[in-house]
């Protein structure tokens, strides 16, 4: 801070001001108590959690030492002539993500209208559909993958089905919210011009929500390229399979190579889909 500023600051007589307007400077003790109390609760629960989960400083210190060693072993990243195999696995990962997202979107699209209050006025129907979405959504992708492996066997197909399932729930919820927040005037116009309720959905709602849904699907595709990289941990295909194996046998140079490949791929996908999303949303505004 420069000197003139500091001088100016001291020139303000805070003590006199406090004496003149005490109520402005005083924090009510009730507010203070609530703040301190909630902070205390948060910290107390954190301390309890650390105790319950066996946090130990010794383990953390030792672990960081080993992590440091690992970091050194990771350098330099190298594929050691398995680059084509990694590329293939990465393509598989992208395939899983794309197919999973597409399937989820195709199935979620019609069902989401059932869950929207402004399309199906029946409280019972949309309550059931909503809770159905919630149940499907609360099961993690990896658990879905384990279940699908029982059905179609190990491999990327199970991964694609797992992503399709878990995203069906998430996209269904988002889609139905988008449909509910759509402008109702267009639909009312269609009804006034003599359209039936299907016409209202087709010409009044779908054109309004399609760009929003499209951008959400793209966003999910982005996040699914990330999830698809881990689905191999349970044997459902993609680059995760290599990643798990190589971490287990401590081939750390190849691990860091794969992580770099994933980072680059995710960045590229983000870039492309970000562009597409802007076209979708921007095209609608014009």
């Amino acid at each position: 801070m420069s000197d003139p500023l500091r001088a100016r600051r001291q020139a303000v007589d805070t003590a006199a001001l406090t004496a003149r307007y005490p109520e402005v400077f005083r924090t009510p003790w009730a507010t203070r108590l609530v703040t301190l109390g909630s902070l205390g609760c948060v910290a107390g629960l954190a301390a309890f959690a650390m105790w319950w989960l066996d946090f130990s400083a010794a383990r953390i210190l030792n672990g960081f030492g080993r992590l440091g060693e690992f970091a050194l072993l990771m350098l330099p990243p190298s594929a050691e002539d398995r680059f084509p195999a990694f590329l293939g696995a990465l393509a598989e990962t992208l395939g899983i993500a794309f197919l999973g997202t597409l399937t989820a979107a195709l199935f979620a699209f019609p069902v989401a209208f059932l869950a929207a209050r402004n399309v199906v006025p029946n409280v019972f129907v949309h309550f059931v559909v909503r809770r159905g979405f919630d149940v499907i959504r609360s099961v993690d992708v990896l658990i879905w993958a384990l279940i699908w492996i029982n059905v179609v066997g190990l491999g990327p197909f199970a991964g694609a089905l797992a992503i399709a399932c878990s995203d069906f729930g998430a996209l269904g919820k988002l889609f139905s919210e988008a449909v509910e927040s759509a402008d109702r005037k267009a639909g009312e116009g269609v009804t006034a011009a003599g359209g039936g309720s299907l016409d209202r959905v087709r010409f009044g709602l779908v054109p309004a929500v399609l760009p929003v849904l499209g951008s959400q699907v793209l966003y999910f595709f982005e996040s699914n390229t990330r999830s698809a990289t881990i689905i191999g941990i349970v044997g459902a295909g993609g680059i995760g399979q290599y990643l798990t194996e190589l971490i287990r046998v401590l081939e750390l140079q190849q691990v860091s190579f794969i992580v770099l490949m994933i980072l680059v791929t995710v960045a590229v996908i983000d870039l492309i889909s970000g562009r597409l999303r802007r076209v979708l949303i921007g095209g609608e505004r014009r």
């Binding site: 130990s56 080993r66 990289t229 992580v259 994933i262 980072l263």
Partner: peptide
């Protein structure tokens, strides 16, 4: 970088460095 690498990959690496257990998950 922190958010692109999935948490379960961090967990895989940490399990080797810190040993099994919930602390690693946290």
């Amino acid at each position: 970088v922190l958010r692109t690498v999935p948490e379960i990959v961090f967990a895989l690496i940490f399990v080797i460095a810190f040993g099994l257990g919930p602390m690693v998950g946290v």
